Simulated scan of single mutants.
Amino acid sequence: MKLSLPMIALAGVALLSACNKNDEPEVVGGPADPMADQLANAAPVELPPSVKATKQYRCKDNSLYFVDFMTDDKTANFRTKKGGEPTQLKAAEAGQAFTAEGGYEVSGQGDEVQIAVPGKKAQSCHV
């Protein structure tokens, strides 16, 4: 009994030492990516702007408008009713008026702005 336990341990060590004795390298990463060169040379991806501020404006004619100003300072989403379909307004440069085809325009980004919608002249609106 005393002799068999060391013999079993010795046999186990001998079996484990025989593992992985080949000289070939082990491939871990898998096959090469066929698009690696295209991805490396691709233009950087620009994420769309996120909402910087959402404001609700009451105008002189008592109309209510909703504007989401974006982080790029060149884009705004304009709604004529809460939860309504947005009209995307764009500015040529940061700080200029946001406009869209059809006569939409928002001048400013603060608590006091000028808003024009199709069929109405621009009017002063505030938060």
Rank of each mutant, 00 (worst) to 15 (best):
Q123Y: 04
F69E: 10
K52I: 04
Y65S: 09
C59Q: 07
E85R: 07
V113N: 00
P25I: 07
D72P: 03
V28C: 03
K74I: 13
V27W: 00
G95Y: 09
A100P: 00
V27P: 01
T87L: 05
G95F: 12
C59E: 10
Q109I: 11
Q88C: 01
S50A: 09
G102F: 08
D23I: 12
A53W: 01
V45C: 07
G30R: 03
Q88V: 15
V127I: 11
L5G: 00
E101F: 01
L10E: 03
D33W: 06
V45A: 13
D72Y: 05
L47E: 13
P31A: 15
T54Q: 10
D72H: 05
Y104I: 10
L47P: 01
I8T: 14
K90V: 15
Q56M: 11
D111R: 01
A9N: 04
V67Q: 05
L89K: 08
K120D: 09
V113Y: 00
I8A: 14
A18S: 11
V28A: 04
L89N: 12
G108W: 03
M1T: 06
D111Y: 02
P31H: 08
E26A: 08
R79E: 02
G30Q: 11
Q56G: 09
L64A: 12
A42V: 10
V28D: 05
L39S: 07
K55I: 13
T75M: 02
A14V: 11
E24H: 10
P48W: 10
V113E: 00
Q123K: 06
M35H: 06
F69N: 06
F98P: 03
P25F: 05
K82G: 04
G12H: 02
Q96R: 14
S107A: 15
S4C: 02
S124A: 15
G29C: 10
S4R: 00
P25W: 04
Y65P: 03
E85S: 10
L16W: 09
T75L: 01
A91C: 12
A97N: 11
K2Y: 00
P34F: 05
F66D: 05
P44T: 14
V51Y: 04
K90F: 07
F66W: 10
T71A: 11
H126A: 15
M35Y: 07
Q114Y: 00
L39D: 10
P48D: 13
E26S: 03
V117F: 00
D33S: 11
K74R: 13
V45Q: 12
N22M: 11
A91V: 15
A43C: 04
E46H: 09
E105W: 00
A11F: 04
L47Y: 06
Q114R: 06
D68H: 08
V127Y: 04
P48R: 13
D61E: 12
F69M: 08
T54Y: 08
A32L: 11
C59R: 07
L15M: 03
A76Y: 01
V106S: 07
M1I: 07
N62I: 13
D73Q: 13
V27T: 02
G110D: 09
A32D: 10
Q109S: 14
E85N: 09
G30A: 14
V13W: 05
E93N: 15
E24I: 13
N20Y: 12
D73K: 08
G30D: 14
L16E: 05
D73F: 07
K82D: 12
D33Q: 09
P44G: 13
G102W: 06
